[in-house]
Design a protein around this nucleic acid. Sequence first.
DNA 1: CGAGATCTTGAAGCACATCAAATACCGTGG
DNA 2: CCACGGTATTTGATGTGCTTCAAGATCTCG
Lengths: 251, 251
Amino acid sequence: MANPWAAKISQVVKLDEQDRSVLENLTARAVSVEPGRTLARQGDRPDQMHVVLQGFLARYKILGDGQRQIVSLLVAGEACGLQAYTLDALDYGVCSIGEALVATLPRQEVLGVMARRPTLAAGLRWGELQAESILWEWITSLGRRNAYRRAAHLLHELHLRLSAAGLDGEDGYDFPLTQMDLSDVLGMSVVHVNRVLQRLREEGLIVLRQGRLTLPDPPRLAAAAGFDAAYLHLDCRGGARPVASGMACQT
Amino acid sequence: MANPWAAKISQVVKLDEQDRSVLENLTARAVSVEPGRTLARQGDRPDQMHVVLQGFLARYKILGDGQRQIVSLLVAGEACGLQAYTLDALDYGVCSIGEALVATLPRQEVLGVMARRPTLAAGLRWGELQAESILWEWITSLGRRNAYRRAAHLLHELHLRLSAAGLDGEDGYDFPLTQMDLSDVLGMSVVHVNRVLQRLREEGLIVLRQGRLTLPDPPRLAAAAGFDAAYLHLDCRGGARPVASGMACQT
DNA sequence: CGAGATCTTGAAGCACATCAAATACCGTGG
DNA sequence: CCACGGTATTTGATGTGCTTCAAGATCTCG
């Protein structure tokens, strides 16, 4: 399972050899991008998608007064921009966080592939829907969880998203976000991010150093966050049972 | 333009007579629902969509500790649940706020219509995308705007969403949200909602009484909110120019 | 007219922001 | 190897936006 995109999709759909090789081809020309590189700009006409193979991407909005809010993080195996042919202009910018390996694809090509490979198409659509679920959960985090739980919730979610695609080793995962990045994700000040992280450390819920994050006791972290994994729609573990069979029939 | 759903879609796509009558038929069996009625429950298997013809619906999540966060408001002309066949379970509940007129449709039927009427399909997809845009903007509101701007932003956005569909009279629009509802939308306490509304009133930015909201000076309200309407993707005013022509070709 | 919701007001407390400065980290060049 | 500069992290002190608690006023409707 070299390709994290395939791994992600396989969580929910049973890919055959051809599906896999199609994905392999699509991502063959992936490119390594340095930290903080802008891949798309707010207001751009969106005609390509991005697939993350390693590292993190962020989708962000810039407010009039210069503040930044990261509206979504993308981890390895995740894609963005499939649906976002919002006609006129992209709502958010996309940039790398830390070093990342990214495939940039013309959307048309991907749509073509989806027309030919229904299973793949179902898997890709499921990815879009999961991303939307994550948005909703994120809204409730921002609206109703305090800084501590919000941070715990995010870290645990990333853990699940990565490990669901088999990218989270026993010793944790690479975590290139600076505390400033985190503050833009979590909607709080850098200083407060720092304090919250410290509390999580003291309580033995996270180990974070040198760009690597380990969760010694995920269940306890989940409890601290008030985490309910239902919104990730990963219940179909084992991979054997393709849950999304009905999805291919979208118009 | 009796049908607000058609009006909404017409903002972006040129409907012919048949399209209109199809929409008319779909919404023929609309039902009036009393305030606070639950239309769908978090965790339900989602196989139907809802279209709002009058009033407001809310999509909400309930946290473990009983708190509620409204993740999205739906106004007349808007639909929900088209994409949300998240396979296993609905991420949010849907309920009415105030009295509302709602059409509940089997999703299959709508998908069938979309297959036959590409223009309509494009319009419906545009609606989904706009809804997603709104989510992103809402995340940045929750993360980066203070209570005052957040409230101003919401009220102005609703004004635009309604007036874009021609449902906002010169004297404002019906506004059935209680301050408690607002607190669940805005992610703040009821008391603070009250204070923020008062400030907006004192400054002459809103007039709100007896379930009716008037914006005496929308531009000033927009300025107070730091509002940038780009995210609503309404730039294509006039209705004559169908911007979404390219959209019909989604797989 | 009375009962329940909703709105309003005040007072006190806390979570988080802001300001400011010190420390640790990291790649670079000497 | 160390010196160095820039960036990221940490710490403390102070301020404030918002919450919470509590009570009174107003509205709504049977």
